[in-house]
Simulated assay, not measured.
Amino acid sequence: MFGIDALRLLVAVADTGSFTQAAVRLNYTQSAVSRRIASLEQQAGGPLFERLPRGVRLNPAGHALHRHAVEVLERLSRAEQELAVIHAGQGGTLRVGAFSTANISLVPAALRAFKQARPDVEIVAIEGRSSTLMQRLAEGALDLAVVSDYPSGLPSADGVTTAVLLEDELFVALRREHPLAGAGTIDLRELRDEAWLQDAPAGGRPTLLTDACARAGFTPKKIIKIAEWTGKFGYAAAGLGVALVPSLATWAVPAELVLCRLGDLAMRRTVHTALPAAPLPAALKLRDLLRDAPDTRRGPAVGLA
Rank of each mutant, 00 (worst) to 15 (best):
215 R>H: 12
235 Y>F: 15
238 A>R: 15
174 L>F: 04
225 K>V: 02
231 G>S: 13
218 F>G: 08
201 P>M: 08
216 A>S: 14
234 G>E: 09
180 L>Y: 04
219 T>Y: 00
217 G>H: 09
208 L>S: 05
220 P>I: 05
223 I>Y: 11
192 R>N: 09
204 G>R: 14
228 E>V: 09
235 Y>E: 09
177 E>T: 15
231 G>I: 02
207 T>P: 04
248 L>Y: 02
215 R>N: 10
185 T>M: 13
213 C>K: 03
239 G>V: 04
178 H>P: 06
245 V>L: 04
245 V>K: 02
188 L>S: 01
235 Y>L: 15
206 P>N: 11
188 L>T: 00
219 T>R: 14
211 D>I: 09
215 R>V: 07
231 G>E: 03
246 P>K: 05
206 P>T: 07
233 F>Y: 11
203 G>I: 07
252 A>V: 03
193 D>E: 13
184 G>E: 13
233 F>Q: 02
181 A>P: 03
209 L>N: 03
180 L>K: 03
239 G>S: 04
181 A>L: 05
190 E>G: 13
181 A>T: 10
203 G>K: 12
189 R>W: 13
227 A>Q: 11
184 G>P: 11
229 W>E: 08
200 A>Y: 10
220 P>M: 05
192 R>Y: 01
185 T>L: 09
222 K>S: 10
240 L>K: 05
239 G>K: 08
185 T>Q: 10
247 S>G: 04
252 A>S: 11
198 Q>M: 15
212 A>T: 13
210 T>P: 06
199 D>K: 13
176 R>M: 06
189 R>G: 12
223 I>A: 07
208 L>Y: 04
247 S>I: 10
234 G>P: 00
205 R>V: 13
245 V>M: 00
186 I>N: 06
174 L>A: 01
219 T>N: 06
211 D>W: 15
248 L>P: 00
212 A>P: 07
202 A>C: 08
